[in-house]
């Protein structure tokens, strides 16, 4: 118990000592993040335009909610994800 409290104190002291130079400013960086998406701006989804029927999929009947027909489609699109056990996790 004593030991872990001391570990915390030591860590915070070193942090503060280090930060006197580095961490205090936001300029400090702990290495680049693995993924960063500069400049991506999401289009706002709320608007008051109405979708025309022009490109509407004919189907809005309830059958469309049972997409059995698409099993092969999804296989095709996902074929680049390989290896491992695809069904291991449930």
């Amino acid at each position: 118990m004593k030991n872990r409290n001391k570990l915390v104190s030591t860590a915070i002291s070193s942090l503060l000592a280090l930060s006197a130079t580095a961490v205090a400013t936001e300029a400090y960086s702990a290495g680049p993040p693995l993924e960063k998406c500069f400049g991506v701006v999401k289009a706002g989804k709320n608007d008051c335009g109405v979708k025309s029927l022009g490109t509407a999929c004919q189907g809005t009947s309830s059958k469309d909610a049972q997409p059995d027909a698409y099993i092969d489609v999804i296989k095709g699109n996902c074929e680049k994800i390989v290896g491992g056990s695809l069904t291991a996790k449930k």
């Binding site: 997409p67 999804i74 699109n77 994800i81």
Partner: peptide, 21 residues
């Protein structure tokens, strides 16, 4: 807008169908 990678993985047609459900 929220799930562009899923749409790309499963294809637009399947995505629309799943979205409907």
């Amino acid at each position: 807008g929220a799930y562009p990678v899923i749409e790309r993985l499963v294809g637009a047609a399947f995505f629309r169908s799943v979205a409907r459900g």
